[in-house]
Write a protein that binds this DNA or RNA. Structure first.
Lengths: 109, 109
DNA sequence: CGCATGGTTTGATTGTTGTCAAACAGTGCG
DNA sequence: CGCACTGTTTGACAACAATCAAACCATGCG
């Protein structure tokens, strides 16, 4: 099992995190990771209707920004949110963004 | 005194807010607005070492995203953070971002 | 080994963005 | 009006990004 490069918690940059989450597809990926724990590249591609190479590209962007952790098991790669690392680095940031992605949690209706 | 177009609070989009803040110059502008209340286009240009047209461009990006409000008085235009609107739309988001950029920014709220 | 499966990389295309400089426009003052 | 001051718009340019398709790489299985 190989390990992919992940930035250390203290090396996570705020602008890169915000930039990574400013894409609708990546924001949706993160929102799903928050509720479903782990996702593979292929499942995201199918569910969001994008090519698998596009999904891979987005996962790399999220990984490089320090948002997700990639764990390989067999032929599959499981991506998960780095919740604790992000909370330690930018307290409250991920929580506020995740709550903002849920329409029912807003003053919308 | 003229009014520039600003999006209504309920029309502020999360991805556009994150995108606006993903640029280091704009993030710095917002951080300074948080501690200093109001800034003009020219002052930002001088302090951050960018051309005035670039500063104007960034202010427009922040205004279009719903982050800042522009008020004209005489020949000057004062930009200020839409703190209350952002708090109503995305609770806790701006606070967590500001604390990530400048931990003392919260004490001025 | 041969093959299927799951992801990655590369190429091409298209669109966006950040920046400066120069021209333009609105405002206030004399 | 003419002028100075502020900010906006336009033009140009380089850099980056999102997407798909196809080729490629790696892993596990028979």
């Amino acid at each position: 099992m190989r390990l992919l490069p992940h930035p250390a918690t203290e090396d996570i940059e705020l602008t890169e995190v915000l930039r990574a989450l400013s894409d609708p597809v990546r924001l949706e990926i993160v929102a799903r990771l928050a509720t479903r724990g782990e996702l593979t590249c292929g499942s995201v591609g199918e569910e969001l209707g994008v090519h698998k190479s596009t999904a891979s590209h987005h996962f790399k962007a999220l990984r490089d920004a320090g948002l997700v952790f990639t764990k390989q098991e067999g032929r599959l790669k499981y991506m998960s949110l780095r919740r604790d690392d992000l909370e330690a680095r930018f307290p409250g940031l991920l929580a506020s963004i995740l709550s903002a992605t849920r329409p029912d949690a807003l003053s919308h209706g």
